[in-house]
Design a protein around this nucleic acid. Structure first.
Lengths: 167, 167
DNA sequence: ATAAACTTTCAATAATTACTGAAAGTTTAA
DNA sequence: TTAAACTTTCAGTAATTATTGAAAGTTTAT
């Protein structure tokens, strides 16, 4: 496998992975493209590389900027906007984990809390609903907290010592 | 909020959460329904509660069984099949994490490994591709290993002591 | 002020994914 | 062995989600 094939494979894999954690293919592919680019890319370049329309490119780049993983780069003397992505994987993981927690996990936790707090009317079915949603609520909170703490701790020693702990 | 409203809210929230981790709404809703049920449910009961067709119910229940989180319950004297889900959240989390790793994370890790192993032809762009995919590969492997180890350790003390550690 | 260079928006359309329902298949009881 | 009770399959259709492309909007240079 040489460069072009590897590049395409990487962009496609990353793209389809995107779909299953709730961001769309184009968005994930743009991020992948920028991630392996050696310099910031313009809208034109992104369009050409990924064979997607101007509108699609514009909307998805904007979303990536909202997520905080892509930034506009203003090149002196150039009219066009150029874009680049966070290149450090640890930082990337941190930002993604935080965004996903905020957008998806927190709302679910909120609902679980509400549902598990309904008045116990003494019936079997109400007891079960409360018990099970309470358990899920606790699990979700624990998982979310751990995920965030883990990725926040950028230090390599931590990851390594934890891994060792679990082996 | 009383029982019916809470129940509907829980099922819907769980259902829409499903979509964004790669299983469809009906599948997630069936699991949610079984999760708070006080007894195993038949296909008829699931259809009625969720207002979905027989075909849809059949296919999604089968998928849940494949995932290993729903089991057929044969009730003596009954012709119908009844279904119930894993009720322990820790065990549920363990099974889901394992399945997701197997279905989604492992294939990505494999691709990242392949891509990061291409021959270095000395060009800038090849060097960048190798460097970045290598970094992602390491991150993905670490994350996957940790996730699995974490959820495998069912013991509560571990979760608690880890949480304490990070606070 | 104008126009060229560029970006954003959004209605229309395409692509994907989920769902239905009826027919085919299977199991069980008599 | 038959038929009732039940489950599965899958072609057709519906619902959802992503993408296009052209018009509208914005910025900059002169």
């Amino acid at each position: 496998m040489e460069f072009e094939e590897a590049k395409i494979k990487f962009i496609n894999t990353w793209g389809s992975l995107g779909t299953l954690w709730g961001i769309n293919k184009a968005m994930a592919q743009i991020q992948a493209l920028l991630f392996i680019a050696t310099k910031p890319l313009s809208t034109e370049e992104i369009m050409a590389e990924l064979q997607i329309s101007r509108g699609n490119t514009s909307m998805n780049v904007r979303q990536l900027i909202e997520w905080g993983i892509v930034t506009k780069e203003l090149i002196p003397g150039e009219r066009k906007e150029y874009f680049s992505t966070e290149k450090d994987v640890q930082e990337l993981a941190r930002v993604i984990a935080k965004e996903r927690s905020r957008r998806e996990i927190q709302p679910v936790i909120k609902t679980l809390k509400e549902v598990s707090s309904i008045k116990d009317d003494g019936t079997q079915k109400t007891k079960e609903l409360i018990k099970q949603t309470k358990a899920l609520h606790e699990l979700a909170e624990t998982a979310d907290t751990m995920l965030n703490k883990l990725v926040s701790q950028n230090q390599n020693w931590l990851t390594k010592s934890l891994l060792k702990m679990f082996k």
